[in-house]
Design a protein around this nucleic acid. Sequence first.
RNA 1: GAUUCCGUAGCUCAGCUGGUAGAGCAACGGCCUUUUAAGCCGUGGGCCCUGGGUUCGAAUCCCAGCGGGAUCACCA
Length: 572
Amino acid sequence: MNLSEQEIIRRNSLQELIKLGIDPYPAGIFEVSASAAEIHEKFPKDNTLYQDVAIAGRIMNRRIMGAASFAEIQDDSGKIQLYLKRDDICPGEDKTMYNTVFKKLLDIGDIIWVKGYVFITKMGEITVHVKQFSLLSKALRPLPVVKEKDGEVYDAFTDPEQRYRQRYLDMIVNPQVKEIFVKRTKMIDSMREFLNAKGYLEVETPILQPLYGGAAAKPFKTHHNTLDMTLYLRIANELYLKRLIVGGYDGVYEFSKDFRNEGMSRFHNPEFTQMELYVAYKDYEWMMELVEEMTEKIALDVHGTTKVEVGDHVIDFKRPWKRYTMFEIIEHFTGIDISGMTENELRLTAKKLDVEVDETMGKGKIIDEIFGETCEARLIQPVFITDYPVEMSPLARKHRSLDGLAERFEAICNGKEICNAFTELNDPLDQRKRFEAQLELGRRGDQESMILDEDFLRALEFGMPPAAGLGIGIDRLAMVMTNSQSIQDVLFFPQMRPQQKEAVSTDEDFKERGIPSAWLQWIRTLGYNTLEALDKSNPNKLANDLNGLRKKNKLDVPALNSEVVKSWQFPQ
RNA sequence: GAUUCCGUAGCUCAGCUGGUAGAGCAACGGCCUUUUAAGCCGUGGGCCCUGGGUUCGAAUCCCAGCGGGAUCACCA
């Protein structure tokens, strides 16, 4: 392992601490009597508080001025300044704890526990005057240093790759990141609370499924050894939840991680979360009201208001939301009434609107395409779009009065779908026909067509009550509720391509070649991390370079000649 | 998958009309007892993403690859 200068210094500090009898990673219960945020909030109102306070956190900043120092520590709630005075920390003759431990051996990033009293500095900063401190955890890697003045951030840690790969670092250094995830959890809590209050049952259904269904998507495939069978990671849980409705529950819901083997973008991660809900004896009209009510509550619970800032817009989730049929909204934005058009007429209309369509698309797909191109992105305030073409909705009930449409709606806001719902199709014979139509699409090469689930059909044949179903994209909704531009910002650990590990030979491999351990570190420093790299090297150059390092670092080992280096290469 | 931009010190970035690297912060050594992205003096730190090519000479130009961002396509 090649360590940077700063990492070596920190590892040395660690050894020094141990020599001083300080355990750099102590175990125990470290009592804390306040948080940074709490002190900031309450102390200005009552300055008799916190006169004997203990807090713990990570050192984020240090300013050492001889016998006194300021530091900032960060706990879960935020940052607070510390003031350390040598003679307070070390009242006796021995000034080691301040001069050596605090000033030399602690670093930004270390986690400490302090005890003292709160006061306000001349500059007006609420500060803990530290009487006593102890190290709780030594950091061996330097933290990116982000500085802030008057609300302006300098040298922000912004590289998306590092932020997502090392989310822990992102959270330490960019505290607003933690806030996003707190909001996400509040949002989910709010939904759960709402659904439980209605008496619906939260359930769990299989993630590993022998048949994938409930949506049109490519699955991830895996294999179970004992059963020697292919299993799929679920793309949706719809068909299982409906089985539970058949089984007699009147309301079931599940927050489910679903998996789709498709492209990635700022709106798509291969694993994502949906909340699906099914309620017996209801229809899609009823479900729209539930969605409005629930989303309004979420906004209130997360933000304390129904108005949420998203990008350049303020989105108001206050009920009731506008409702348009798909035909109405298309007419609204294009001035063209496409209801009643034949497939050919639709094709011509699409062309006129500059919407790309191809020969394989049927009527429903063309309508959906026109909607997607001309309407969706322009719908900023929450709105329900209803009555989708039936061909696009193989699990939704046919519209009770309009031919060719399904009783389906999507809620759209900020130009993106946030939920999809319908009056569920409970006619087993119609469902079978729809599946068969999907199979036909599959035979024509549609890789995302649904497959026929005989057991699900069997369940329907036993009779499913009329029901309304809903799927909400939790990540999408979280993006809106947290004003995030990318799905990666609302997932702790978004999917990334793995970093390639550098091939590295072990120390033992090198020692077997007869390389003294004193030289090993320096060979690695020069970039020879594998035996192969060593074998390929020019022994004269390597000996030269190593002797250079020997001189520069005043190493206590004899100088090398290239014959010795040659003897390390190629095993006899 | 396509197009396009990016990859230089621990972090943020400059250098890119080719001459083997700079700044600020961080680190290290000093000075400084309430400072405010503290300040001052000094020091060290770099496989300039990887591999090829062009060239006397490449961080810089060309090609390929790896990783990331953005846009588009599929989709939630």
